[in-house]
C-alpha cells in the first residue's frame, strides 16, 4: 500500500449527500478480476451519458476540477455495498483524500486499506469549504496526516482527527496481514480450544 503523509491537490466539489458505492462504481464494472483499471468507470452513470460521452455538467468533467485529487462531499459518503471497487476506482482515478462530515463504515474502513484518507470535518466546515471552492477562493488543499492539519493557499486551516492506529498504518503504508500474523501463537492457542460444534465436519 502506498503510504500517505502529506498530500497537496486540487479540490473536486461533489455536492451530494448519501453518495452510495453503486454511484461510485456501478455494478456493470465489478466483473474485472484485478484491482486496477477502475478509474475510467468512477461515477460512470453521472460522468457519462448512455452513449458513453462525457456529461459536461458533471463536476469531474468541468474545469478547474479535472485532475483534482481531493474529493469534497456531503454526509454518509460511501453507503451501501461493501465493494472495495469503490476505493479502487477513486484511487485509480487519482483521489487520495475524501473530505465529508461522515462516512459509511465499510467504505471508511476500505479506504485505509488502499492508501486513501477519508477525512471527517464538521458539517459547517464542509459547508464553508464548499462555499470557498464555489467562489474559487479555495482551489487546492494541503492535507498533512503527520500533524492532522488541512489548509488551503489562502487563510483556511482546520485540524482533524483520525484513530491513531489507522493514522500510523496509513503513514507507513503497513500491510495488516503481516501484523496479524505476528500473533500466530495466540491464533494457534485459540484454535486449540476451538468449540467442536462450530467445526464444519459434514461434507457437501
Amino acid at each position: 500500500m502506498q503510504p500517505l503523509n502529506q498530500h497537496r491537490g486540487g479540490v473536486i466539489p461533489l455536492d451530494r449527500a448519501n453518495v452510495d458505492t453503486d454511484q461510485i462504481i456501478p455494478k456493470q464494472f465489478l466483473k474485472r478480476t484485478e484491482r486496477t483499471g477502475f478509474g475510467q468507470f468512477l461515477f460512470y452513470n453521472w460522468r457519462f451519458d448512455t452513449d458513453g460521452k462525457p456529461e459536461p455538467g458533471f463536476v469531474l468533467n468541468r474545469e478547474p476540477y479535472t485532475g483534482g485529487s481531493i474529493l469534497l462531499t456531503r454526509n454518509n459518503f460511501g453507503c451501501g455495498s461493501s465493494r472495495e471497487h469503490a476505493p479502487w476506482a477513486l484511487l485509480d482515478y487519482g483521489i487520495r483524500v475524501v473530505i465529508a462530515p461522515s462516512f459509511a463504515d465499510i467504505f471508511y474502513n476500505n479506504c485505509f486499506k488502499n492508501g486513501i484518507l477519508p477525512l471527517i470535518l464538521p458539517e459547517e466546515t464542509v459547508e464553508h469549504l464548499f462555499q470557498r471552492v464555489d467562489s474559487d477562493i479555495t482551489q487546492k488543499l494541503t492535507v498533512d496526516l503527520e500533524t492532522c492539519q488541512i489548509h488551503d493557499e489562502q487563510d483556511f486551516t482546520a485540524s482533524f482527527e483520525v484513530e491513531p492506529y489507522r493514522r500510523y498504518c496509513l503513514l507507513n503504508g503497513l500491510d495488516d496481514i503481516a501484523i496479524t500474523l505476528q500473533q500466530e501463537d495466540r491464533i494457534r492457542d485459540y484454535e486449540s480450544r476451538y468449540p467442536d460444534y462450530y467445526l464444519l465436519t459434514n461434507p457437501v
Binding site: R35, S82, N109, K113, I177, T180, L181, I187, E191
Partner: peptide, 14 residues
C-alpha cells in the same frame, strides 16, 4: 467486509 479484509481472513482467519 471489503476485499482486502477477505484476503486478511483467508490468510489469518482473523
Amino acid at each position: 467486509i471489503g476485499t482486502s479484509e477477505v484476503e486478511h481472513v483467508l490468510a489469518t482467519q482473523c
